[in-house]
Design a binder for these strands. Sequence first.
DNA 1: TATTAAAATACAATCGATTGTATTTTAATA
DNA 2: TATTAAAATACAATCGATTGTATTTTAATA
Lengths: 341, 341
Amino acid sequence: MDTNEVTIHHIAEILGINSSTVSRALNNSPRVTQKTKDKVLKKATELGYQRNHLASNLRKSKTFTLGVIVPRISRHFFASAIAGIEETAFKAGYNVIICQSLESLEREQSIINTLLANRVDGVLISISMETKNYDHLKGLKQRSIPFVFFDRHCNISGNSKVVIDDFDAAFKATEHLIKKKSTEIAHFSGPQNLEIYKNRFLGYKAALEKYSVPFREELVITSSLMEHDGAENVKKMLALPYKVDGLFCANDVVAIGAIQYLKSVHVKIPEDIAIVGFSNETTSSVIEPALTTINQSGLEIGNVATSLLLQKISNESKKNSNETIIVKTNLIERKSSLRKV
Amino acid sequence: MDTNEVTIHHIAEILGINSSTVSRALNNSPRVTQKTKDKVLKKATELGYQRNHLASNLRKSKTFTLGVIVPRISRHFFASAIAGIEETAFKAGYNVIICQSLESLEREQSIINTLLANRVDGVLISISMETKNYDHLKGLKQRSIPFVFFDRHCNISGNSKVVIDDFDAAFKATEHLIKKKSTEIAHFSGPQNLEIYKNRFLGYKAALEKYSVPFREELVITSSLMEHDGAENVKKMLALPYKVDGLFCANDVVAIGAIQYLKSVHVKIPEDIAIVGFSNETTSSVIEPALTTINQSGLEIGNVATSLLLQKISNESKKNSNETIIVKTNLIERKSSLRKV
DNA sequence: TATTAAAATACAATCGATTGTATTTTAATA
DNA sequence: TATTAAAATACAATCGATTGTATTTTAATA
């Protein structure tokens, strides 16, 4: 037993005072005189006292643990978001349980049950592509466990979220293609149950309208935006009776798949087709030509979402608020769209 | 108070038995008759009982929490390792605290202190590039908190680690370059306090010796292997009085930096210089030419390291064992080294 | 049926910190 | 100095589960 096992009782005994006073002194309670506080703090440092969070949390019936659900940890955006979440949570004395839905609704549901069993104080979630049923999220609400969406959110009543302005970002991306003299612009879209993809599509459409570029239903190709979808989508696109000269992809992964396939069939980028992606994955600056894309800071989104969740947890009146915080994005112009005009 | 708050005492009261019996029944103790167990289990399910881990852990004076220290979460290899760690830990009922050292020794030391304050049951660590002083790790040992290195380890006595055979992988990578008719092979190495880089260097050297390719001190260029080091290293390399025609990089990141710079100065890859990297980052298959590299499964390393740590935690006799588990790697041949021979 | 050993269950303390209430100490006032 | 209010501290219960020991119940044997 050479492990650290100093408790408030040891300190109390040594100082000849009661452990409740020690506890209050360590928590800086106004009920304890400064003189006693000094004595206690000095002795605590001397003995290397460290509060036992298990005991403390049990008494407070809080776990100081947050649940985080992401589609996939190894996606760069989510890894960055997790870094931000850990950072903010850690500073506030919270731990984090990280879970991957792997884009499966079933897994997402089972994760929520496990998080409930672990009595997390709150949940941060970026929903899976399959998530069209929201009963599991309503379950969280019933148990009055606050949660905040980040990035991939959904439209259930009374929720808070930290997102980017997908509409606006998509608008700018499309506008950029138009200014680079694209006249037939395709869009590789994602599952429409996810608001982010719906909004990216709407931003794309709005930009076409504003600049009177014809909108064609067939040029919007929906998939689950994996790398292999890139090639598939391009094949469909090239089979259409339009000479596509611009492509806005709802994420970088599908854009990269598309670029690789287009290169293999000797379509020139950006001369024949200018391309813009979305997310700024690490691969995007490496591929040739480097991919023009929307940069979104996972770190910032993670930080902000966690702050918001912590507010909900500690502030009863905010518990059921529905706030939306929008994090700034910017367009990074790279070679894949820089056609000489 | 509509939250779940069923305790063993509620179950005990309803069934008219003592809570200790309920506890033993739920833990499947041989001291309780099967009949009672059935009764308790049925009622527990009926009431939606869920064990309060805080209380349980407090009594057992275990936190069921593991600390994980990685240089950077967003590196693909570490993100994968974390996925593996979470997976295995979660199955065993453990939570995980993830921390980033950001390659700083100071941060690494402070993280260990925080993990100690959080009374983690064990630690998984991949050390920073700056880590040349191991007092903080000895601190863990003194407190008899088991820890396991993964990937980046160091040579302190009596430790366990889950690693790849860096020597062998580097040997194969270099051998591959030699078989592709490289005769002047450079090596971009990393900080020599990290065993992995030392071993990769030794594997490189051994391959040269075996095939009687001259080893030249100046062709080994050491840096912190960031992307920008790639260009710097290449400049130094090209200034040397040797016609380098092969390059083995100790990681993919520096290899990618090198490729990009070489392309900018019109050196042909693989014709002029054949290149092999190490780690199989996601970018490596996307860069052009795609990078030949050593594939190491972060997921598997994370899984295995966590299993080993959990063994140490639960098995007193294994606590001070020093095991080394080697996870398989393989060479992925891509265009960056496929020179026609 | 009475006795006894074994099996099953109940009792009570415990993990360490927190917190409402009771008691003691201090300081202010008559 | 006696009285009283306020400040400081002590007491004791509590969070929920676990576990060593004591007691009761069951079943086996004479």
